[in-house]
Design a protein around this nucleic acid. Sequence first.
DNA 1: GCGTCCAGGTCTACC
DNA 2: GGTAGACCTGGACGC
Length: 296
Amino acid sequence: MSNTFTIPTPEDFSFRRSVGSHGWYDLMPFEYDEKRGRLTYSYFSSVSRCAEAITITRRSGSLTVNTSSATIDRPEARAVVRHILRLDEDLKEFYESVSSHDGFDWIRRISAGRLLRSGTVWEDLVKTLCTTNCSWSLTKSMTRNLVEKLGRAAADGRKAFPTAEAIAATSAEFFRDEIRAGYRSPYFIELANSVASGDLDPESWLCSDLPTPELRKEIKKVKGVGDYAADNLLKLLGRYDGLALDSWLRASFYKRHNREKACDDKKIERHYRKFGKWKGLAMWCDMTKEWFGEIE
DNA sequence: GCGTCCAGGTCTACC
DNA sequence: GGTAGACCTGGACGC
């Protein structure tokens, strides 16, 4: 048995562009039916201590949420939807910044810039580790294995991302053999142990008072997290000072702005410096401009 | 079929 | 602080 409720959305919110803002929609436990405009997400409820699955569709001015169980905790489900689609994030300042620069005014026009994220910082951190030094297909494979082999099932059978406790209960050998995480395996175990024991609380980074450079240093203390991974996670925390440069982003910049020739990162940094604390988001939008067609 | 390269990088040792 | 080499995996590519 399931139930349904609605959530109003901000005026400058685009469901399709938020979901498709980057590759997260393609990683379990997200499932995206683009034709039907339907996003499904499963999460582990801290209220019911069970996995819950929600399906989100867009209606004019609001989102409709269908749940996998009738007893789901609605306030928590609402909070999860607001969090993953960043309904409470105020991008007014960002839109004002990009609107004053030629070639970037489309961002406000199509309401781009809200980056899809997972229900917890823990989940985003692990997924970000899964993106390092590998192809996208391997990232998908590792996250699929994590969910299928360690996640708890909701009423409809869909599985949530595993908790730190579930991962801490495994071993580096399990990660090598079953998750196919290779040399990253001990990093996952160390991180899970640290979160499960309470020594590390990634969720606290969401409302940290630390200036971004210091928070970045904190995040980089996690083994396996370097410059790219830290900046990527910071973007998901709502801090866009860093560019989160990886091989795809660099190649995209060379193609668009440097006559397809490689250059050092300082040149890329200079190109987006004018956007100040929004430069990471401005660059991401710039590099993914063609993803949504019909812009010009 | 086989070998090589490299991808949404990071760590460690060394200078 | 900067750099070289090692590190898992799996898909793409050339032969």
